[in-house]
Write a protein that binds this DNA or RNA. Structure first.
Length: 566
RNA sequence: UGGGGAAUAGUGUAACGGUAGCACGACUGACUCUGAAUCAGUUAGUCCAGGUUCAAAUCCUGGUUCCCCAGCCA
């Protein structure tokens, strides 16, 4: 029936949720959560997880998705990250109602659960340091051995744990560990650490705590406290699920189920907070929101729409095996959305002056242009036309090769919404560079149609020299030169694959005057060029546009082919 | 070499014993006042080897390859 299989296909996690509803496993409840650690900015990979978790909640009656910060490691976490994460998820269009939670709000409760485990003989204070714990843990193929502190009395454990909390011991000197099995084939089960001593100030709890729960201990409890039903995380946590289950079973408390899916990988891109942080800290990009970054804030500044990102996430699927999405798919979705929604304007990136010799000096006409052919409601606007214009340098060739349809000596083309013009003369400077074209126009073609029905091979965009506005335009290319940035020479790292030409700034661009009062983050299509977005740094004195993505450009491909075959 | 996962066109993703489909990409062509969009078409796939069955991507057996785990990160 449906041509698009996406409309009736559900991924394996949604299938589980649907089955649980059918069998009434959770009394019909659907509660998910998105649990970022506030130690970096959100990126397109997080968007996949956000759309999954919030999407599942939204698709099911009464479904809820909590936004919960997993802030259990004060050393890496900062308020600025909390703020950006909230902003980004809102911008993507998701809503968590009043359910903004923090793991740190549960610290007291977690502590009491830990005491409960000690009393049950299932946790103990260990005096081994980090090195020693590693040595005692064994290896992938050899079992570990028990800590000498494993069999302390409950009283001693309670007392030591209490003193850990009270700040009596230095960082790293003791831990609280679960008493499981030092010979377990899953290393996560070899008496994992539940609490470590960290005399560090926390963005939210300040200096109240000097012991902090580890991820494995904390995460299940967070899910438990919030009565989550489906705890969705990425594949690398699959090995942790037995521990997630062990803690909740040992406590005998409400027990959500954890499901794992593959994280997003994308060509020409790194999606690891660690690597993105490196780029920011090394100054290799201009901050987390640099338009070349795959962060949500970077994509926003680049000109991506929430709709484009959500459509992309909908189409990439959810699975249990690693895959790398072609960045062309992301670009496809942004073109698809922007084609429908963005206003068209004319802008000339690399201006070439054109003088219409037979057009009266001083005359100005206001010609009508369509704002968005995909949306009749967008209306029309007036664009000024005069004797001196700019066209794109790339739209003229003195000695045109085959398949070049644009302007050339003696050739007639259309100026969009204006007139047919014919090139009569080429003016060059002392270096032989083309600096000006002299053309004639046909007054009968006003508006762009020839009454005699004659055709031209191409239509060019243009601006009036006198009326156009100066602008700066930033052209972006992939941040990395290799599909897989981690494919590096011995001894090098991903940064060696950075694309030195990922940003090209054009400072002598001209845009039509209707753009005079445009606002930051407004999105446009520059006709025949691509989609562009007003940069937040833009001002009335200096208009700045970021190229989101170019239009599909068959001519560019033909040209590359012609260059190659030379 | 312990344990846990996973393999379908170039890429991504469906088909849950019954015609291997869709999207992106690539390539044709039509249309076009954006070489865009739109429309029509072409291209190309079940990791391997056995087995069960009228029928296998799907079930069974045995291989192969890839990913994750030895943080007091998440």
């Amino acid at each position: 029936m449906s041509k698009n299989n996406l409309t009736n296909h559900i991924d394996f996690i949604r299938a589980i949720v649907a089955e649980d509803i059918r069998t009434n496993k959770w009394d019909g409840r659907v509660v998910t959560r998105f649990p970022p650690e506030p130690n970096g900015y959100l990126h397109i990979g997080h968007a996949k997880s956000i759309c999954l978790n919030f999407g599942i909640a939204a698709e099911n009656p009464g479904g809820q998705c909590n936004l919960r910060f997993d802030d259990t490691n004060p050393i890496k976490e900062e308020q600025q990250y909390i703020d950006s994460i909230i902003e980004d998820i809102k911008w993507l269009g998701w809503d968590w109602g009043d359910r903004l939670y923090f793991a740190s709000d549960y610290f007291e409760q977690m502590y009491e659960y830990a005491v409960q485990l000690i009393k049950a003989g299932k946790a103990y204070v260990c005096d081994l340091n980090a090195d020693e714990i590693r040595q005692y843990r064994g290896t992938l193929t050899e079992p570990g051995k028990d800590s000498p502190y494993r069999n302390r009395s409950t009283e001693e454990n309670l007392d030591l744990f209490e003193r850990m909390k009270a700040g009596k011991f230095p960082d790293g000197s003791r831990t609280l560990r679960a008493k499981i099995d030092m010979a377990h084939p899953n290393l996560n089960m070899r008496d994992p650490v539940m609490y470590r001593i960290l005399h560090a100030s926390h963005p939210r709890t300040g200096d109240k705590w000097c012991i902090y729960p580890t991820y494995d201990w904390a995460h299940g409890l967070e899910d438990c406290i919030e009565k989550v039903t489906h705890s969705i995380c990425t594949l690398e946590f699959e090995n942790h699920r037995p521990l997630y289950d062990w803690y909740l079973d040992a406590l005998g408390v409400y027990h959500p189920r954890q499901y794992e899916f593959a994280r997003l990988n994308m060509t020409y891109t790194v999606l690891s907070k660690r690597k993105l942080l490196q780029l920011v800290q090394a100054g290799l990009v201009n901050g987390w929101d640099d338009p070349r970054m795959p962060t949500i804030s970077g994509l926003r500044r680049r000109g991506y729409s929430p709709t484009a990102i959500r459509n992309f996430c909908k189409h990439i699927g959810v699975n249990k095996f690693n895959s790398t999405i072609d960045i062309a798919l992301l670009e496809h979705h942004v073109r698809q959305d922007l084609n429908k929604t963005s206003l068209r304007v004319m802008a000339v990136l690399k201006p070439l002056k054109v003088v219409i010799d037979n057009y009266p000096k001083g005359k100005v006409e206001q010609l009508e242009a369509v704002n968005n052919p995909e949306d009749p409601n967008a209306g029309t606007r007036k664009v000024p036309f005069s004797r001196e214009l700019y066209i794109e340098q790339d739209d003229f060739m003195e000695d045109p090769p085959k398949k070049f349809y644009r302007l050339a000596p003696g050739r007639e083309v259309r100026l969009r919404y204006a007139y047919f013009i014919t090139c009569k003369d080429v003016v060059k400077n002392a270096d032989g560079e083309i600096v000006e074209l002299h053309c004639t126009y046909d007054p009968a073609t006003r508006g762009g149609d020839a009454p005699d029905g004659r055709k031209v091979k191409s239509t060019l965009h243009w601006v009036s020299a006198e009326h156009s506005l100066k602008a700066q335009v930033r052209l972006y290319d992939h941040l990395f030169t290799k599909e897989n940035p981690d494919d590096v020479e011995e001894g090098a790292d991903f940064k060696s694959n950075l694309n030195p030409n990922s940003l090209e700034t054009l400072r002598d661009c001209r845009v039509e005057p209707s753009l005079a009062n445009t606002k930051p983050l407004s999105r446009y299509q520059f006709e025949r060029l691509g989609y562009f977005c007003v940069d937040p740094d833009s001002s009335e004195e200096t208009l700045i546009f970021n190229r989101t993505v170019s239009l599909r450009d068959p001519w560019a491909k033909i040209q590359r082919g012609q260059v190659r075959s030379r």
